[in-house]
């Protein structure tokens, strides 16, 4: 299993049919064990935060046990548009 920002991004993009994905390696020395992700997907529409995060966790179920720290932000395309206007 490959653990890298790009592999996580590809997987989230594919499985969650995401409009937009950002993955940042937040490990101080970039050793790819801590990540911050932003996922924008229509799949989040009408779902509370907990369910959205569960979708992300399920998508990365294989990787998460090997990740030391994981931060996530889950937005619908509409929320993402509003966020960018701020």
């Amino acid at each position: 299993m490959e653990l890298s920002a790009s592999s996580l991004r590809d997987k989230l993009q594919r499985d969650l049919e995401a409009d937009h994905v950002e993955v940042e390696d937040t490990t101080p020395n970039r050793c790819a064990t801590s990540f911050r992700v932003l996922v924008v997907s229509t799949k989040f529409e009408g779902k509370p935060l907990l369910q959205r995060h569960r979708l992300v966790n399920e998508c990365l179920a294989e990787e998460l046990p090997h990740i030391h720290a994981f931060e996530q932000k889950t937005l619908t395309p509409e929320q993402w548009t509003r966020e960018r206007q701020k």
Partner: peptide, 25 residues
Amino acid sequence: SNWPTIPQVYLNGEFVGGCDILLQM
């Protein structure tokens, strides 16, 4: 909790989420 990370927060016996969710709430 079916949740892969610590910390975890429960309110009134119900799972709320981890740090990101509490922060957004």
